[in-house]
Amino acid sequence: MDAVVSLRIEPVSDDATLRDWQHVHNEIIPTDPLSLDDIRERARRNRLTVAYSGELLVGCSTVRPPSDETTAATVIVRVLPEHRRRGFGTAMYESELAEARDLAATIETIILESNQDGLRFAEKHGFVEFERYVLPGATIAYLTLRLADR
């Protein structure tokens, strides 16, 4: 757990952090790779962050505010596989959850069905599945989970 003490979470604010966010996203979601332009567009609507342990990139996150389609805020935390089970995901999640709670009472997350580590993490933190969908041309479903009242 000592590694978490050195966790630094930074907003995506320049080309270097855009590329780092892209690297993590595209490694964890290979079925839907994003270009830098895609990420720039997302950064206009959402809070995007990258997380580092020292200078080492460990993950990225998204906080999506409520929209016309949903009254929930969405929190998505991605940790590179080689950095999992060290507390990074929990630290990132707690930080992003605090941001999301300022936006909405209902919190959701979205996980690629094949990301079993991410699904276990979400369930451990109180999320329950309420929707699945497959993007056009894809074969792996995305799971939308909602944070259950505790």
Rank of each mutant, 00 (worst) to 15 (best):
E82S: 14
H83Q: 09
G89D: 14
I9R: 01
R42T: 03
L36N: 04
A51V: 01
V24M: 07
H25N: 15
E41S: 15
S53K: 09
A51W: 03
P30A: 08
E82T: 14
D15Y: 00
V50F: 01
A43G: 11
S13L: 02
R42H: 10
R45K: 15
L34T: 12
V24A: 06
L57E: 12
E69K: 02
A51H: 04
T70F: 04
E41I: 11
V58N: 03
P11M: 00
D20I: 08
D38Q: 07
R84H: 14
V63E: 02
R85W: 01
A91P: 00
G54Q: 01
A72Q: 02
V50M: 00
R42P: 02
R8V: 14
S53C: 15
E69A: 06
D20P: 08
V79C: 11
L36C: 08
R42I: 09
G89A: 14
W21R: 01
F88Y: 14
R19Y: 09
I29D: 09
L36K: 03
L56D: 12
E82P: 05
E82H: 10
N26D: 15
L56H: 12
V63T: 07
E55A: 13
S13A: 14
G54M: 05
A73C: 09
R64Y: 05
R78N: 11
A91L: 07
I39T: 00
A73S: 15
S61I: 02
R44L: 13
A72T: 07
R78S: 10
D20Q: 11
S13E: 14
M92T: 09
P11T: 08
E69T: 05
E10P: 05
A91M: 06
L36V: 15
S13W: 03
T31Y: 02
